[in-house]
């Protein structure tokens, strides 16, 4: 089972390695990890998607809480979160294929970020499932390269991680 965990930490050097080190030390598997500064520059927010049963998820939350640099840990319930990841996909695109690709991009909510006579680089930000679907749609053109960020997530509604 996938768990999406949001962690607020002190924005110090070395904090990320404490967090990621804890995962490997305790034998937890990370699917993805994303980190960035918050509205308060002294605080960073880490989003981790991890695999494991309920016991694992509970342990994870408790162990993360024990790190001295951790301000807040919250496991976001899967039906109450907005999750996004960003992908850049470079595909083969001959001039006569461009329109077709553009149509797919428009329907799927993707943008063209770069273009050359033989390739297009597509930028898309959405849920992991949507992105998988998109890749299937365009794989026929020949994917040359994919770069993806980790998932970032936020609670739906008015509540925040602090509340």
């Amino acid at each position: 089972m996938k768990h999406t965990i949001s962690i607020l930490v002190e924005n110090h050097a070395g904090v990320l390695s404490r967090v990621s080190g804890l995962f490997s030390r305790r034998g937890f598997n990370i699917d993805s990890l994303a980190v960035g500064e918050t509205d308060d520059p002294t605080i960073s927010r880490i989003t981790i998607v991890a695999d494991g049963d309920e016991h694992t998820a509970q342990q994870l939350e408790k162990q993360l809480n024990k790190l001295v640099d951790t301000l807040k840990v919250k496991t976001l319930a899967s039906d109450e979160l907005l999750a996004r990841e960003l992908q850049l996909i470079k595909i083969n695109a001959q001039p006569n294929q461009r329109n077709e690709i553009l149509t797919i991009c428009e329907i799927m909510g993707a943008k063209i970020a770069d273009i050359t006579p033989t390739t297009m680089t597509i930028e898309i930000s959405d849920t992991t499932n949507h992105l998988r679907h998109f890749r299937e749609l365009i794989s026929g053109y020949g994917i040359k390269e994919i770069v993806r960020t980790g998932t970032i997530a936020i609670q739906k509604g008015a509540d925040t991680i602090k509340k």
Partner: peptide, 8 residues
């Protein structure tokens, strides 16, 4: 005193 030990 360590919440992580409880149930571990």
């Amino acid at each position: 005193i360590d919440p992580a030990e409880i149930g571990k």
